[in-house]
Amino acid sequence: SDARTEILVAALESGELKPTELDPVRAQRLTNHRQPTIRNRARQVLEAASAARNTVLAAYAPVLTMAADPSRGRLVFEKQCTTCHRVGDRGVNVGPDIGDTRTKTPDALLTAILDPNRAVDNNSFAYSVLTDSGKAYTGIIISETSSAITLKQAEGKTETILRSEIEELRNTGLSLMPVGFEKTIPPEQMADLISFLKNWRYLDGAVPLGGK
């Protein structure tokens, strides 16, 4: 109803609901709403959020030409990324496989880290589950049957939930990867991290480093 939509838009405007918590389908409904006032208010908030990500990416653009050390980048990876990603013998496979980054440009890696919701693989959407007992789970669906689903969560934890206990199952339309790594990874460390992702397989010295 328009009343519920008004509450939703007001929550976005006040910051009570973050734009990243709004799935793409619902966001599209708001930005194409038949009521011009609701439509324009929603567009203003959501476009501002998109612009904010672009501002962060622009601020981190110098990372792509910085001198970088993949060995230092390995330490950044171990601290920031291993709860959901695995490279070599480090980390846990929850999110997309980033072990083979030879075909990915540094620019693409930077965008994926700082704006993970820009392009989400169909198999990597985070699902939100609410059970009839009030428990809430978020994770990637790794298997499902007629009677249950299994979610994979950060740190590789899995949770199997009976469908008979599910009150709500919702595709968030978002990546499980959080937004905001600019708050914990400064530009110099980001350059090191990207260099590690590009060059980790060469750190044993068997093959000379080829730069970032």
Score class of each variant (00 low, 15 high):
D2K: 13
T5I: 14
E6K: 14
V9I: 13
A11Y: 03
L12P: 05
S14A: 12
L17G: 02
P24Q: 10
V25L: 12
V25I: 14
R29I: 04
L30F: 02
T31H: 08
N32R: 14
R34N: 00
P36A: 05
T37R: 14
T37G: 09
T37K: 14
R39W: 04
R39T: 04
N40R: 11
Q44D: 13
V45P: 10
A48W: 05
S50M: 08
R53S: 00
N54G: 11
L57R: 12
V63E: 07
L64N: 07
T65Y: 00
D69R: 13
P70N: 10
R72A: 15
G73W: 11
V76G: 06
F77K: 08
E78H: 06
Q80H: 11
V87K: 04
G88Y: 03
R90I: 15
R90S: 14
G91C: 11
V94N: 00
V94I: 02
G95R: 06
T103S: 13
T103H: 08
K104H: 08
K104R: 14
T105L: 10
P106K: 12
L109I: 14
A112N: 13
A112E: 10
I113V: 15
D115R: 01
N117H: 15
A119P: 00
V120C: 02
V120Y: 01
F125P: 04
Y127K: 06
V129L: 09
V129P: 09
T131L: 10
T131S: 12
G139K: 13
I141T: 06
I141G: 09
S147Y: 00
K152I: 15
A154S: 14
E155V: 09
G156L: 04
K157T: 08
T158D: 05
L162S: 15
S164G: 03
I166K: 08
P178E: 10
F181R: 13
F181D: 01
E182H: 12
M190T: 06
L193D: 03
I194Y: 05
I194W: 06
S195V: 09
L197K: 06
Y202S: 12
D204P: 07
G205F: 12
V207F: 03
V207N: 06
P208F: 02
P208T: 04
P208C: 01
